[in-house]
Design a protein around this nucleic acid. Structure first.
Lengths: 199, 199
DNA sequence: GCACTATGTAGCCTTTGACAACATTGTTGT
DNA sequence: ACAACAATGTTGTCAAAGGCTACATAGTGC
């Protein structure tokens, strides 16, 4: 399969990826509800039934989008936390901020990530979700070792801060809070969280 | 318009309400994405175009559902907070718990309430949202007067606890946390919030 | 009882997701 | 090399949905 200067090949080459990227653009512009498999097919230049080979049902594509979303979110958080020279509270704020900016920068994607899990046929979305959450868990454990956090289930502690930031971004994305207040609220929330979760 | 023992009248009488109630059942059973105006019309026993008189577009019905949701949520929170004999922290826990149970008891509705606001043509959803939020705001103010909470914008403080509970319910509804853990997490979150927001 | 408005009906159109039958390309074992 | 075979795309079809228009019926107010 060498590259063909122009004209269409019968086989696209990497249709799955092309569809996912087109879908991300689409939901970013017009939301999940407006996403149409046929539109994507047109945009990518394949027939209307081609996507079916990669995503038998519409929801399968949405799941794949959510999974990619979690992968990127996890990477973003991991990067934010990676500076091991900083103090624990600062790293916590960075992690929260990374989450917040990802969430408000990709509203439709976040909505998908928050909604798609509980379906019957277990996709691999929950796994991706847990993987994205892992760096926060690690950070919590480190905070406990440093005596910056009280003892107790790291998972429970992490869940609360995760939920808080998630909730704030939900309100921002819904328009209940202006986007400019995100940073301020995030910092306040984290600081308050740290005070409340101190030993 | 007297009641007609049986058979269909040309005019339904209260189609709008009937549609909304059918819609609530529908999303409870099968989620927002499966909601079909034509299904509702069939269920209620009117023609497929009748709903259009009350909800020109599908989204208008969703907005109305969200609005009713906020009305009920607000009522639920107001009731939870109404016991003025209890201590402030206890009332806070009750408010949070009321929110949590409403949210996990009506997952699809909550999703709608969290998503529907930011649309261009300003519906009255944001107003309803603010009204539901009001009792929490009042409670915060009272907590500040009682020196149970530090000074500072009540709205900002309230937003954080609201976001936290909202976030927890999102995780529960998404299946990331089991429903049994809701109460426990809510209590922990509120207690930690109170410690962190203490003067 | 007569206009006017509100509410419901019937029919049409376009788009969509899902499905099946068929076409083309890539791969693998011999 | 080449013959199965699997993977990937295409064309055609269908039922269901939302949205629209024209029309029918029922309340309401003058």
């Amino acid at each position: 399969m060498v590259d063909q200067p122009e004209q269409s090949r019968y086989h696209h080459g990497d249709l799955r990826t092309a569809l996912l990227e087109a879908a991300e653009r689409s939901i970013r512009d017009s939301g999940v509800s407006q996403l149409s498999l046929r539109d994507l097919a047109r945009e990518v230049g394949v027939s209307h039934a081609a996507p079916r080979r990669h995503f038998p049902e519409r929801q399968d594509l949405l799941d794949a989008l959510a999974e990619r979303g979690y992968a990127r979110l996890g990477e973003s958080i991991r990067e934010a936390v990676s500076d091991h020279d900083s103090e624990f509270p600062e790293r916590m704020r960075r992690a929260a901020s990374a989450f917040g900016h990802f969430a408000t920068g990709n509203p439709a994607l976040l909505e998908l990530m928050n909604a798609t899990k509980h379906r019957p046929g277990a996709s691999s979305v929950p796994q991706s979700s847990a993987a994205a959450f892992a760096p926060i868990l690690d950070l919590i454990c480190e905070g406990q070792e440093n005596k910056a956090l009280r003892k107790g289930s790291p998972e429970e502690i992490g869940l609360i801060i995760y939920a808080t930031i998630n909730g704030i971004t939900t309100l921002v994305n819904a328009g209940a809070i202006s986007a400019e207040r995100l940073d301020d609220l995030t910092i306040t929330a984290v600081n308050q969280f740290l005070r409340g979760a101190a030993p």
